[in-house]
Nucleic acid binder design. Structure first.
Lengths: 138, 138
DNA sequence: CTTGACTCCGTACCATGGTACAGGGTTCAG
DNA sequence: CTGAACCCTGTACCATGGTACGGAGTCAAG
């Protein structure tokens, strides 16, 4: 079976060579045997693995979480575990969405107030940022 | 008018002393005159300024954007400009929310499929991450 | 044999928003 | 006068996800 040099892997997966080495350092892709030279010799499957990483990132997983997902992918048989990870991530996404929605709503209200009653001497938005209530002391 | 030492400012604003110095380095709060010693002497208004920063952060502004907002706050009379910044930020928040919603929806679908037809040998989620369509070559 | 393209390693750097020292100086109470 | 508690500067470090670069080795074609 023919093996690929890192540049070929990177090109096929759509990432930079440095990124492939970065993923290796982060243990997302395995350390592969080197030939007589010190060149990495990748099996073709690594390209798929990197694409898996890309898609997982698009779904909001961090590299650390993806390492976990890849481990499940490697040891076939953990469908329920994978689903669990997906569901946890969904909860997290929902929380992030809710947080952004709260910001959005707060800022939307300020913008409306400001649009209704603009006041250069005492802009409603700046005023709210100055005096807003918040649990400041942590 | 009495002035405050940095520790007092930090305590009143609810941040660490290092954070106050950090904000000074980032030019979010002014360089203040020092006394006979080299201690910073802050006017009381700086506490309010730091709270302004905190609240702006809560609304999703970056420190760079907050620097901008503070400049508008300093030169009274830019209510329309402030509103413009707020509206741009709202658009950005909407985009981020939409992106997260897309991730959420995609992952939600995968989780449902996986819950309907779990398969340890070929988990629908892992399978989708392996073969998903995406514009890979950039 | 040389040249160009590729690879290697190690390290530094980017943004973001801080946090944590180390090794000093200052200030105030007792 | 001494010690605690504060302040100073400068630098390094944290996570996140890479990107860039220098200097050296390798490989294939011409």
């Amino acid at each position: 079976m023919e093996s690929l040099l890192i540049g070929e892997v990177a090109a096929r997966a759509g990432v930079l060579v440095e990124t492939v080495r970065f993923y290796e350092r982060k243990r997302l892709i395995p350390l592969v045997p080197r030939g007589r030279s010190k060149y990495r010799r990748y099996p073709a499957g690594v390209v798929q693995r990197i694409r898996f990483i890309r898609r997982s990132k698009q779904l909001g997983f961090t590299l650390e979480e993806i390492r976990d997902l890849l481990a499940l992918r490697d040891r076939t048989g953990g469908c329920a575990t994978v689903r669990d990870r997906a569901e946890r991530k969904i909860v997290e996404l929902d929380e992030r969405i809710a947080a952004l929605n709260r910001m959005r709503a707060a800022l939307g209200e300020l913008a409306v107030t400001c649009a209704d009653e603009p006041n250069d001497a005492r802009c409603p938005i700046l005023h709210a940022l100055d005096d807003g209530e918040d649990g400041c002391v942590r």
